[in-house]
Computed example of a mutant assay.
Amino acid sequence: MQPDDREEIRDLLKRTAVALKEGDVPFALCGGYAAWMRGAPEPDHDADFLVPAAESERAAKVLAEAGLEVADPAEDWLTKVVQGNSFVDVLWRVCGRPAEADLIDRAEIMPVLSVHMPVLAATDIVVTKLMALDEHYCDFSRMLPVARALREQVEWARVGRDTADNDFAAVFLVLLGRLGIVDVPPGDPTGS
């Protein structure tokens, strides 16, 4: 990502958050930028917000009414907000499941680039990132810096329980234990 692109995505992130706040749409910053706010490296791609599935249509309307360019992608689980070469994904499904309000309710209000907004809890960031791993996308090199940076903020036993059905997540947790990043016993993804 070039410096101009980074500023563009940061600007779009802020504008999207302000529009959702002013439109009274429940939301939380999620994905790489949420992890960045909690100490992980800054991502080199888009930003992501999560809204409850029941608020998806209203969120898109609020963003358009705020003057943002809203694109309707082929995927049926997100809306894209576009500015130049940058975009923000507004998701209402995570790993095939509708986003529930309790996930957003657990978010913590934090200053993000001078805008106060809800940021997904560290445990929820890790769970959602791990649940996205599958045979088509299994890039542990992107996950390792996040896990290392957030390790003291995460409830690892809950991560193990919430991702137990995902073999790729289970293997990643074993890797974290073997590397000494977290105390997850090898072969026991629940950490209990």
Rank of each mutant, 00 (worst) to 15 (best):
D167T: 10
L91T: 02
E57N: 11
K61F: 10
R10N: 14
E75N: 08
A121G: 05
V182P: 04
A64K: 15
D5I: 08
V25R: 00
F140Y: 15
Q83K: 15
P189G: 12
R58Y: 00
A132E: 10
K80W: 10
V159G: 04
T79N: 06
V174M: 14
C138D: 14
A47L: 08
A66R: 00
K21G: 06
F27P: 01
A71V: 15
D165E: 14
T190M: 09
D165M: 09
N166V: 04
V82H: 07
M131Y: 08
A53F: 12
E100W: 04
N166R: 04
D89P: 06
L173R: 03
V51G: 01
G187Q: 13
A47S: 15
A101N: 00
E7V: 02
V127E: 06
Q2V: 09
E152L: 03
D4P: 02
W156L: 11
D5M: 04
L113S: 03
G160M: 05
D72L: 08
P41F: 11
T79G: 01
L130W: 01
A17Q: 06
V126Y: 06
T128A: 14
I104C: 02
P3M: 11
F49I: 07
E8Y: 04
A28Y: 08
Q83R: 15
Y33M: 10
L176V: 05
W92R: 02
V154E: 12
C30Q: 10
L12S: 11
H116K: 13
L113W: 09
G160F: 02
A121I: 00
D11A: 14
R178F: 00
E135M: 09
Q83F: 10
P118W: 11
D162L: 15
K129Y: 01
V159R: 03
A101H: 09
V174A: 14
G177H: 12
D72H: 14
Q153P: 07
P186M: 07
F172I: 09
D5E: 15
D76I: 09
A149Y: 06
E69N: 14
A164I: 15
